[in-house]
Design a binder for these strands. Structure first.
Lengths: 343, 343
DNA sequence: CCGCGCTTTGCATACGTATGCAGATTTTCA
DNA sequence: TGAAAATCTGCATACGTATGCAAAGCGCGG
């Protein structure tokens, strides 16, 4: 059976059902004023013609595309994949979809933002550390709601949802102290990312209260990647054995995996006996039996729900949040990379 | 400075530049017939008004959205994340975007496909094993090009790009034999997935040629997940120690990680000394020092390039490929989970 | 039987851009 | 210099749907 070349439109359905095009439109919009039997007749005709409403066309008049742009900075970090997955699920449950933008190293902010705006998205979720400022500016100027996911811009008034990273850093410091850590080290992420800065700050501040001077905490930058962290870990241990750290905080899990792997494989360091390790994020791999990483779990579901709520996708009038900064608390997940306290 | 509430349209730009709306449209389309200085004047006015062409509106007349739907069945498998990332990068380089559809366990094929069709996408890339048949049917009926990524449907004529899984299974069999494997075992994936079936077939066939009877190969289903594989691995070793397998093929890497983790942690099995393990896919984690997994690398970049080419997104007339089945060869990546041959 | 209110329907138009066509302008060549 | 060719521009319309408005149909109470 050969289908007609042209796709059926609401006019075709209207003709078959013996109603006007308006009736077809109303039949497909739940809250419209239309008689039950008319709707049934229309849906029946639509089925016969294999008609599917054209959302692109409808978005012209409704001024809503039901599309949300998600800009992912680092697809190599499972945490952001997890966040993307969660965002996609939530939006799909609302009848909306994700338009995905991945950001390459050399991507220009203006370039990405121009593409986002061309697609008339209803909102933007930005998970990229880099380029945030210029992108949020253009988005807000054009009346497109944007929410920063897990990062913020100090001088700027864009809405932001994040884990309380300072608090989380403190949780890690507290756990490492309780487990008997004495010589502390950190592997930090992208230096420009507030995520990294805040976790470091929470960690250092809490240690300071326990009498550990900041200058006694060894530090190396792992650039938020597995490989970068492996290199950083080796750098931290490039010193006499008696000065080796015995407690290491990696500001995210993916770096903790890199550090653990290289330290065990290259230097034969036993974890947690010779070195205690903690991460941040609670990515799926942190629970794997090769790592059993102690970490701070981010409340991803709640963060996503909050972020999408701040976009105000429902409701007739578009309201843009300003100067919102929601910090949700994470919680410590204790696994096997710390010694039991008092053990 | 307060921006006007309404976004600037091509008419606004036209008025400011003193030209017609058509001229504005042409100024933004590279191959249009327009004088250089007119274009410059238009672009200048556009910049002043912060005008961005509305791609949604333009797609109404061009009948192209420059959007490709990507349906991801399993976001928990890093291989598909990697594929998604690669697809996104390639499309963005062509000025197109990915509209992401994630498939939950309980998602209905009709439901997802209806949403795909509503958005008038220019093409569909389907990476989900389940539901493939009904989805491809509806897509093709409506003239939307669809390509199955790394799976195919035997009775169906949709285009398909995949790794040569039979060949890859043979590579693994060959490597395990050369490394001295004697008692073989497999952890299989989703029973309905051709990906799993083909890899198993290649593996079993190759072993048979070497004199290993299929019924001597132990088998358990890991359902393509880390956790499922861990359970399957324990089941395979739930027998007298002298009957334990010494060569294990997991039909994808994520399951190999699960199997290795549980066998080492729970049963204390040394890899590769007591057990040799191989996977398939070459996900990033396979290279991590905790695993150093021998596996078959899929040529993801080439597969994605081929898949997108089959959609025929360029060119004026939409041509739909039928009955295409491209199988690209993978290559063995030897790491530390096999003993060196002759060692 | 009349008038009021409620529901349902169709008409007309708007959304923002692309493009065929014809007219206008410039260039080319004899 | 003139005519033909080439280039550029604007007009008008189409793409597919949503919705304000008014008209029509209906039920109900007086």
């Amino acid at each position: 059976m050969m289908k007609s070349r042209r796709r059926a439109t609401s006019f075709d359905v209207a003709a078959l059902a013996g109603v006007s095009q308006s009736a077809v439109s109303r039949a497909f919009s739940p809250q419209s004023s239309i008689a039950a039997d008319t709707r049934a007749r229309v849906l029946d005709a639509a089925r016969k013609l294999d008609y599917v409403p054209n959302r692109i066309a409808s978005s012209l008049t409704t001024r809503r595309t039901n599309i949300v742009a998600v800009i992912v900075g680092d697809m190599a970090n499972p945490f952001y994949v997890q966040a993307l997955h969660c965002i996609g699920r939530s939006l799909q449950a609302q009848g909306r979809q994700v338009l995905l933008f991945t950001l390459d190293r050399d991507a220009s902010a203006d370039d990405v933002m121009r593409r986002v705006l061309q697609y008339q998205v209803d909102g933007v979720v930005l998970t990229s550390a880099r380029l945030s400022m210029r992108m949020t500016g253009r988005s807000l100027d054009r009346g497109v709601p944007i929410v920063l996911f897990n990062r913020y811009i100090p001088g700027h008034d864009a809405a932001c949802v994040r884990c309380d990273n300072v608090h989380g850093g403190g949780l890690i410091a507290s756990a490492l102290l309780a487990a008997g850590g004495r010589r502390f080290a950190m592997i930090t992420g992208d230096p420009g990312a507030t995520t990294s800065q805040d976790r470091v700050r929470g960690f250092v501040t809490h240690l300071a209260q326990a009498g550990v001077a900041p200058e006694d905490i060894a530090e190396a930058c792992g650039h938020s990647t597995y490989e970068g962290a492996a290199a950083a870990a080796l750098a931290l241990f490039d010193r006499p054995r008696r000065d080796w750290p015995d407690a290491l905080f990696c500001i995210n899990d993916i770096m903790a995996l890199g550090a653990m792997d290289v330290l065990r494989a290259r230097l034969g360091i036993a974890i947690p006996d010779a070195l205690q390790v903690a991460g941040f994020d609670d990515i799926p791999q942190a629970a794997h039996l090769s790592y059993r990483l102690t970490t701070v779990a981010q409340p991803v579901d709640a963060m996503v729900a909050e972020a999408l709520a701040l976009l105000h996708l429902d409701g007739p009038a578009r309201h843009i949040e300003r100067a919102i900064d929601r910090a949700l608390p994470g919680h410590l997940v204790v696994r096997a990379t710390l010694r039991p306290p008092g053990g």
